[in-house]
Amino acid sequence: MQGKVSFEEDAMPVVYAGVDVSKEWLDVHLHPLGESRRFSNDKTGIRQLKRLLARHRPKSIVMEATGKFHRPAHRSLWLDGFAVAVVDPLRARMFARACGYLAKTDRLDARFLALLAESLRPPAD
């Protein structure tokens, strides 16, 4: 490849995000970047989450349905044009178990939601 320039090294990877939602927190993991962050589950935290996601523009975001606690984040992300899929928590748990992980923490859950986004590609709501 003499005289040719390859931009593969500079290319941005396709990013998938998993968001584990609880009453107080939004735990997010960006795959394959390996970046994990925690934000408060309120207007300020959702705004910070959107800033992080806007920098990386994930192809898909997956979050668990957690009663009413996921709704404000889901609605806000959707209104800003992000592709967000809400999945049944049992489905996410079964996916993690199928991958061989029995431990359950918010950070791990976010990671497996991001992996689920990449592997199963659930449709955005």
Rank of each mutant, 00 (worst) to 15 (best):
S6A: 08
R47K: 14
T66W: 11
R91H: 06
C99P: 00
G100C: 11
E9M: 06
G81D: 06
D27G: 10
G100K: 11
A17P: 13
H74F: 15
L113I: 08
T66V: 12
H31Y: 07
P123S: 14
D109P: 10
Q48A: 12
R55H: 11
R93P: 09
G34R: 08
E24L: 11
F95C: 02
R57L: 10
A124N: 07
A65F: 00
G18S: 10
W25A: 13
S60A: 15
E9G: 05
W25D: 15
R121V: 05
D125G: 02
M63V: 03
D125H: 01
S76H: 06
K104Q: 11
G81R: 13
H29K: 10
M94P: 00
S6Q: 03
P32E: 13
E9I: 04
R91T: 03
E35F: 02
A85W: 04
V5C: 02
S119V: 01
R71Y: 13
H56C: 05
Q2P: 08
L102Q: 08
K23V: 02
A65P: 00
S40W: 10
K4D: 04
K23F: 02
M94R: 14
K23L: 08
S60L: 14
L53Y: 05
I46W: 11
D88W: 00
L52W: 05
G3I: 07
A96D: 03
F82N: 06
S60W: 04
H56W: 10
H74G: 03
W25S: 14
S22N: 06
